[in-house]
């Protein structure tokens, strides 16, 4: 899967979970600081990414991801086994 497709699905999922428009979300946005995700919402977001990509991630590593861009890179590295 190309990075562009992963990025599109990460942003679409983030928008749905955080009740935002995809156009409002930038790769540089921090989930907590800019997009308003509290600790439970952050976990729900990772759970939604797992569903979106149909995979299971390592909790400790996934919860270290802070920004949209790093989430795209994180799933890119898993899906494309980088």
């Amino acid at each position: 899967m190309k990075r562009e497709e992963i990025a599109e699905r990460v942003i679409k999922t983030t928008a749905r979970e955080l009740k935002l428009q995809p156009s409002e979300i930038k790769e540089s946005d921090q989930f907590a600081m800019e997009l308003g995700a509290d600790s439970l919402k952050s976990i729900e977001l990772v759970a939604a990414f797992e569903e979106e990509f149909d995979l299971t991630v390592v909790e400790e590593e996934a919860l270290k991801v802070q920004s949209v861009g790093s989430a795209i890179d994180f799933f890119d590295s898993i899906i494309n086994k980088k």
Partner: peptide, 14 residues
């Protein structure tokens, strides 16, 4: 199970 797998239960609790 990870915290992600139980997030829906935690949402119900909250």
């Amino acid at each position: 199970l990870s915290v992600m797998k139980v997030a829906k239960i935690q949402r119900w609790v909250m």
